[in-house]
Design a protein around this nucleic acid. Structure first.
Length: 474
RNA sequence: GGAGUGGUAGCUCAAUUGGUUAGAGUACUAGCCUGUCACGCUAGGGGUUGCGGGUUCAAGUCCCGUCCAUUCCGCCA
């Protein structure tokens, strides 16, 4: 028999009963009943219950085994009867009566329990990363990641793409974020930059004639973290294709995204019928309706532009701003009028925390329209707002006023906040979309025209010659 | 870089308007228990309440500073 195991801890079933087996793993749980002892043994594959009896000379040692000690046992498989069967465990119909025990590694007391749901403070979890990764949730996440990457590689290869590795120690290529820098030994005082994305290298591969490239690409960006953005480094599926149109790229990406999500998730995808073209939304429309270029389409709230209604209104703050070039964005919400005053106040606080100067609103109920700004608006203006926002009794409409880009962004964040707080986000479904017709240029703070941050096509100043003459260590 | 929130036992948390010796669960140690599966029961050890200063008869609690964490803004394909 193999020195460490004949089976894994997730493997044994009723038809193994009577066999002598050897298992290795970590002491996951321990239940000491005095005259006998249960230990749940865990490895990568699962958990199996071991039974120790006191007539064995290693019984005393077994009762002192700490959580996460590594042991190898030899024993015989027996069936569990009646209510000793554990239907929650895949191996719950059998257990191992231990005949031999080898303690491979005796664990010290743990800083946190592997059986814990969340494992405690991040600092501790990172210090004892090997323990953290033993926790079921993280272990599953890492396995899922490996399976997804394998699936992506298979799908891309099947679609005729070839995988390349592009350089990590490179010269800086402006992508917008700060570069990570690595000091150069051969050129003291000068630095390599880590790539923020393989953009220029993959384009080089197309120029060089390789036609279809992909890479599970490491990207490095020296920026601060966000809730949905880990700092420093991450991996992305990176693609480049030659002699194609926008639609060809969309089709290639839709196939791999649809297939991968369908393979690994039970959630519906769009209509749930199979690969279909993803919804396409022009940039301007997305910024207006959702206040974002990555809209969450599961939230049934659409922003409207009502600037013209306020232009000649008696609400001086908005009217003046609109005449000065600002816009007013309305966020209509269904069935919300019954919310207490505090709800509106808290939302106002939130609006200010994301940069709004204030948050105006109107509430529609059976008696009519109420709200702090109602008295500043004429009956005709009120009717125009009601019609443009599709407001009915029970609804409310929120208004933000600012320069166009700021108003869009603020309204977009309020839309998402409302969707989540009111539990209006559609459940168990992915709603993919393409944002198309991105602008090539935008205005910066001094109202000068500059390249839009995501514009991938403008040639750098000086053209191709400048690129070729560029010092790689600059 | 700016703002908000938080920091009490190894871990998760409690401690009334400022008021006795800062508690509980878990982990750890010792003991009991023949069918548990987060086993149960008894007892024990474990604390500079992040750190420094201040107010007060009295500070975990209030004030100031500082460090750390976290969320948002700035930044970010």
């Amino acid at each position: 028999m193999h020195a460490y195991r004949s089976h894994t801890c997730g493997q044994l079933r009723k038809d193994h009963v009577g066999q002598t087996v050897r298992l290795s793993g970590w002491v996951f749980r321990r239940r000491d009943h005095g005259r006998f002892l249960f230990i749940d043994l865990r490895d990568h594959y699962g958990v199996t219950q071991l039974v120790f009896h006191p007539e064995r000379d290693f019984f005393e040692a077994a009762t002192h085994l700490k959580y996460e000690s590594v042991i190898t046992i030899t024993g015989h498989v027996i069936a569990r009867e009646g209510n000793t069967i554990n239907p929650a465990m895949p191996t719950g119909e059998v257990e191992i009566v231990v005949d031999e025990l080898v303690i491979q590694s005796f664990a010290a007391p743990l800083p946190f329990l592997v059986d814990d749901k969340d494992g405690g403070p991040e600092e501790l979890r990172l210090k004892y990363r090997f323990l953290d990764l033993r926790r079921e949730k993280l272990h599953k996440n890492v396995v899922l990641r490996a399976r997804i990457i394998a699936s992506l590689r298979r799908r891309m290869t099947d679609a005729g793409f070839m995988e390349f590795q592009t350089p990590i120690l490179t010269s800086s290529s402006p992508e917008g974020a700060r570069d990570f820098l690595v000091p150069s030994r051969l050129h003291p005082g000068r630095f390599y930059a880590l790539p923020q994305a393989p953009q220029q290298f993959k384009q080089l591969l197309m120029v060089a004639g390789f036609d279809r490239y992909f890479q599970v690409a490491p990207c490095f960006r020296d920026e601060d973290a966000r809730a949905d953005r880990s700092p420093g480094e991450f991996y992305q599926l990176d693609i480049e294709m030659s002699y194609v149109t926008q639609d060809d790229v969309f089709e290639a990406v839709e196939n791999v995204v649809y297939g991968t999500f369908a393979e690994f998730s039970d959630w519906r995808i769009d209509d749930g019928k199979g690969p279909a073209p993803f919804v396409r939304i022009p940039y301007r429309e997305s910024m207006l309706k959702y206040g974002s270029d990555k809209p969450d389409l599961r939230i049934p709230i659409e922003i409207r532009d009502v600037s013209e209604v306020f232009r000649d209104s008696g609400f001086a703050a908005f009217a003046g701003a609109v005449k000065g070039g600002a816009v007013v964005r309305a966020i209509p919400v269904k069935d919300i009028a019954a919310q207490p005053r505090s709800f509106y106040d808290k939302l106002g606080d939130f609006a200010q925390s994301v940069g709004a100067k204030g948050l105006a609103y109107l509430v529609y109920n059976a008696e009519g329209v109420k709200g702090p700004i109602a008295k500043f608006l004429s009956p005709e203006q009120m009717e125009a707002l009601r019609a443009q926002c599709g407001a009915e009794p029970g609804d409310a409409v929120f208004f933000v006023c600012d320069k166009e880009s700021a108003a869009a962004k603020i309204a977009g964040q309020i839309r998402v906040k409302l969707g989540r707080d009111l539990d209006r986000v559609e459940k168990d479904v992915f709603r993919f979309c393409w944002i198309v017709d991105f602008p090539m240029f935008e205005y910066d703070e001094e109202a000068k025209k500059v390249e839009f941050s995501h514009n991938p096509f403008s040639m750098p100043q000086g053209g191709m010659e400048a690129l070729l003459n560029k010092d790689p260590l600059d």
